[in-house]
Design a protein around this nucleic acid. Sequence first.
DNA 1: GGGGTCATGTAATAGGTTACATGATTCT
DNA 2: AGAATCATGTAACCTATTACATGACCCC
Lengths: 208, 208
Amino acid sequence: MAERRKVGNLLALAVMSYLTQRPMHPYELSRTLREHGDARSIKFNHGSLYMVVGQLVKAGFIAEQETTREGQRPERTVYALTDSGRQEFRDWMRELVEYPRHEYPHFVAALSLIAALAPSEVVTLLRRRLDRLTEQRVETRAVIDDTLGQGVPALFLVEEEYRLAMLEAESAFVERFIEQIVHPETGWGPMWAEFHGEPAPTDEREQS
Amino acid sequence: MAERRKVGNLLALAVMSYLTQRPMHPYELSRTLREHGDARSIKFNHGSLYMVVGQLVKAGFIAEQETTREGQRPERTVYALTDSGRQEFRDWMRELVEYPRHEYPHFVAALSLIAALAPSEVVTLLRRRLDRLTEQRVETRAVIDDTLGQGVPALFLVEEEYRLAMLEAESAFVERFIEQIVHPETGWGPMWAEFHGEPAPTDEREQS
DNA sequence: GGGGTCATGTAATAGGTTACATGATTCT
DNA sequence: AGAATCATGTAACCTATTACATGACCCC
């Protein structure tokens, strides 16, 4: 069902999206993407952009429209979205919104192997993580307020709101997890610590 | 700061983790990973495993221990974790637990470009997404109960609990988002719909 | 004893990232 | 006038996924 897309890199989605509005040349796309802050949501780097443009041409989703030269600068090739590209774009968007994908975040990998670390250490690390999560929340909140302050409608910031919601949920999870480890009666600490020949962690919060 | 790791694929983390316990040959790793259900948390496929093993050898984190042959089966090479590998494993784990990473989920990409679809269509798609999210929650819950039922301690299922927490948070977010679009007075629908020359969506729930 | 599927890997291809290259503009 | 930065791309290198290969065991 998945990944029969001719071009799978999400950067291609952004490219097609911008070309919906008007033809552009790659460098313009690059600048626009960066200025518009899309790089926060879609992994972006210079080289990949040219690669993706090439793939889109080969797939027939965009086409070279003209090659212009301005002053003594190198030639710039301007690309336009084709009809098939416009269709691919809408279809892909629909799929992304309707179907949740199974993804593989790094934290999940670590969690699945977490028993390999000693519980007391894990608690320390998780507390530090909580601080980092808070920082990210503050930063994201700042991006939102900042952009709203510039008069951008909130609709164009839903992805940041989503990020925020996920950060909050993760924080809550981590807090619960810590509790589960250190809880004096029912905590996993003692059983877990046995794997490691280590003293069970206590409930004091003095550390870190 | 990131990705100076000699081997970056998370599959390598799982490999090192298993080799912590005893030396194994690749096929055994492959089977163990699949049976143990790690494939739900770490992207896995046959080819990548051999690649990763090769990279780990080159980096000095694992070493060929012996080459055995059993009956007329092809030779199997058994690998063991080196000291440097053991250290890399713990260090990597610590990093993963302490530092949240900026990831790029597919849904975020779609959200960042969501204004390109008509609001009424988006509402329909989001409602379908909610159904899918519910399915995934049910499935994850089943995996957890099932595994617990086999006597596995809950500690080894935290990653599934995490997944569950994220699914719930996402569902909540999507519900709020729908409300923001269709809310009779303050909804984004009308403004949004203007981009599309389309009638503003109403608040009736009859559709879908 | 021929047809699956298990066991075990290698090789070919495609995808993505980093490094390199080069003329123009701007700053000091 | 030399240094830094912008503008624009190409090429080399890694990584990851898919396809291919091959002998053993198992079922009917």
